[in-house]
Design a binder for these strands. Structure first.
Lengths: 210, 210, 210, 210
DNA sequence: GATGAATGAGATTTCATTCAT
DNA sequence: TATGAATGAAATCTCATTCAT
């Protein structure tokens, strides 16, 4: 007659807390998020949050750490070897484009963390200094393009990454003010392909041999 | 020996409050900002903030309104008529580039407002629906470039604006996480000209006739 | 081109303040009433309220004093001499019935003053100990009825007054809770004559010779 | 030597808060009551009031709800079946008479709630629309009296209830202004039986067959 | 007489965190 | 492990009143 004993699976409880906390922090920001609210949205009690994570800040850091692991693996699906460099670049940009569109919580958490001047990322041994593996893939592509004579020799991979990120982050992160002022929803599905192609064009223009 | 009587100049008092509030909101976010802290940084009392602005939210909206008026006038200095379209586009992009670099508080406020899903902008009769006049200047430039045969005919001014904003906003707004992860400070003065030129190239590539 | 100089008529200004203050106090109670709100509802400023009345409490007392003067004169219209006692009693009850129905603000002020245990009435030299002149009229009627053999000899005028007041005050003062619980609006115009007659019957039954 | 641990008995803590809050609200009115004062009168802290009741208004509603439950049960003790209708009516009126005399806080809360136009009662799912069970008892008595030929056939139970309430509420609620103006304390013990009988007479005169 | 700005004291409410069991 | 009760510190906001002109 007892309720299903969820309490006996610590990993599950931890993951549940992280799910709810991610939603709450992404929704309200670090300061605006409420520990009470996180507890209220779960079957676990507030005391458990402190048991598993210590305090609000450590919980937030754990949320950040898990959120960042998601994007680190997106480039795995890219078969760099069998694509010509131009297609590879376009597909790589598309991966970030797709990811940011479908993970607004991640993009919001990054914005929030920047408001806090990356104070928590810096405090996390997991995140601090963990360069995005995307750069390796990108570097490989750029080298192959240069060898093929289609890309410039002096392209900085991090600049390419920056252009892709700026476009994709802005489209999601600044969606609301952009829409409020210009009455255009950058996430309108009808504009999706237009923006996706536009990003590819921009990046290719940047890396192209002159 | 009396303290300078700032009290009897309401416009000055109001402006002082806005200055301090802008710094506080940009620094801590809407929720993290403290009315107490704003009052403590001035010679005016906390009570005056409520006297002039009603409550925290209206003060924040007033801060947003004033911050947005700053950027709306930056394009005025651009002498569109006497520039050839290519130079004009490059200079226009440079204006936003310079503005966002020198107004990190504005960029932070925009990020903060997006975290709140533009709830306050929407509530402001001043800001809501007030399209950036930059678009008019941009439209003029694009038309002249098209007439001169150097720009494509189907360029959307808002897309151009988006590319410029995305680049300039990202450089300032995401500076901290970018630096924490990739160890590159996008606001490093030594990189300034490189980024400024890179932006111009990107925008011109986007609008160029093929 | 100057605005009409209302300021130069102190009596008028005083009366205006009292009008607005009466509405505010009757609406929100003594504690709930806001000096700011009273000032906001007038063209006069808040400072004038203090100039004319000293403070919130004295303003409230002035409101009470003026409100009580209204009911003191309602019995004047009653031609006791030419009415037979039974008609006179019924008409007297009707006067209070009509007055309280048409002066809900007065009835509310009395309720409010009772919540404060008549502390302000006691403090007012005008109101304290100023017995309602209605009692004189009432006493005359009762005497004439007794002499005519239609009323009991031992009727206490104050008891009659109490019965009339209880009925008329309750109908107005307790209208809202009565309606909330029993779904009957005691001030429904369709019930007016029923209640008016009922009151007359009650009072006459009380004074009638057995 | 430790203070008695009242803390770990939530029901007791809740009830204690309600006791003190009832006294405070009845004493000062809704607006005049101070949450600080309620806390100061107990061993519990102010914070607990919010923990248990959410905010001042909900606490006030809880006070109202409990106060109203008291009067709803007073008619239970009336043995309608074994009383003749005339005695039953007189006893029923006496129950309200006694209750209101001995529960001035309840009567004051009702006055206060009427000043607020029953806004909180309406908001309470418990109180809104919960007709007083007294009406059932009253209806039964009236029917038996009618069948016995001693009461009129067209008596409205709610009118009878209104007469009883008006008299009993007025005696307690308007005690202070009545005494201030007419120098008669309606709650003077020496007048008690006089008023009690007077009420019975009034009600019986109203329901009596003609 | 009249005005808008200013103010101190105090009101309600919030929130991360810990205690006792 | 788990839980509901408890809490101190601090947050936002209010209000009658007075000052300087």
């Amino acid at each position: 007659m007892a309720a299903p004993d969820r309490g006996r699976d610590p990993d599950r409880t931890r993951a549940d807390i992280l799910d709810v906390a991610t939603a709450e922090f992404a929704d309200k920001g670090y300061t605006g998020a409420r520990v009470d609210e996180i507890a209220a949205r779960m079957s676990t009690t507030k005391r458990m949050i402190y048991y598993y994570f210590g305090n609000k800040e450590q919980l937030y850091i754990a949320v950040l750490e898990r959120a960042y692991t998601g994007i680190r693996t997106i480039e795995q699906g890219l078969d760099v070897e069998h694509l010509d460099p131009v297609d590879a670049i376009r597909q790589l940009a598309g991966l970030t484009f797709d990811h940011h569109e479908s993970h607004p919580d991640f993009v919001r958490l990054v914005s929030i963390e920047n408001i806090h001047r990356a104070a928590h990322i810096t405090r996390s041994s997991v995140l601090s200094g963990l360069a995005d593996p995307a750069l390796d893939v990108l570097t490989t592509i750029l080298e192959r393009g240069r060898d093929a004579g289609v890309f410039r020799a002096d392209v900085d991979p991090l600049d390419v990454h920056m252009v892709i990120s700026a476009f994709c982050v802005f489209r999601t992160a600044n969606r609301h003010t952009f829409n409020a002022i210009f009455k255009r929803d950058m996430l309108d599905p009808g504009l999706r392909e237009h923006y996706r192609e536009m990003l590819g064009d921009l990046v290719l223009a940047h890396v192209a041999a002159r």
